[in-house]
Amino acid sequence: MPISDAPQTQSQRRPPLLEFNDVNTYYGELHVLKGVNYRVGDGEIVCLLGGNASGKSTTMKTILGIVRPKSGVVTYAGKPIDRLPTAERVRRGIAPVPEARRLFPRMTVLENLEMGAFTRTDTDEIEADKERVFGLFPRVKERLTQLAGTLSGGEQQMVAMGRALMARPKLLCMDEPSMGLSPAFVEQVFDIIQAINKQGTSIFMVEQNANMALSIADYGYVLQTGEVVLQGSAQSLRDNEMVQQAYLGEMKAQ
């Protein structure tokens, strides 16, 4: 039975930018998302926690339209988007930082950033956004002519985030941004995510690093084998015993 402290916290939340209503997603026969409901308020950071194979990446792919739900509705900015091709969703302001970064390996860093702005035609604004990305990630500016496939994992993560920002998204969907990064750099990444959010971008983030994620998030969901088993404000999740046991093990030990 899904446990929820929804009534009071939900009502205090911002108006929704993204909503899932009873979404079911399959890969062939495999039922991965089982009637899930999410809501990302305008301007919020929402994090999605869950064990391996629980359907977190599938959630992200469902938002982008890489996979289509069999039933249920995904609403973005007040309109259902289930029928829209991925390109149109990107045009409307959804940008992903996918699992394992997925840069274009034989393009340079600069070309990768420019691909991020693929759906845009406002040349001057694109240049301005490049500068904004360089401001957030000075390292990226030093590597512009290097082929993306030869970057270190941490550098690839910066470029992947930069590429997503080049779309000037309203909603940034990040799949495990801290994966494979050193602890010091993880902290830096989360600071940057917060900065991006302050500049007005809503963030839906999958994370295994629950401690960090909940420290910057407004709201969170816990997914277990395709079902949302728990949701609430970040604070309430941090206090929740089940979350502490399953995802915040190291906090308990302190």
């Binding site: 982008l64 890489i66 991925t86 390109a87 990107v90 045009r91 940008a95 992903p96 996918p98 997925r102 840069l103 274009f104 691909m115 991020g116 693929f118 759906t119 590429r163 779309a167």
Partner: peptide, 8 residues
Amino acid sequence: EAARMVGV
């Protein structure tokens, strides 16, 4: 898939 995700 990455191309799709940047809007190609």
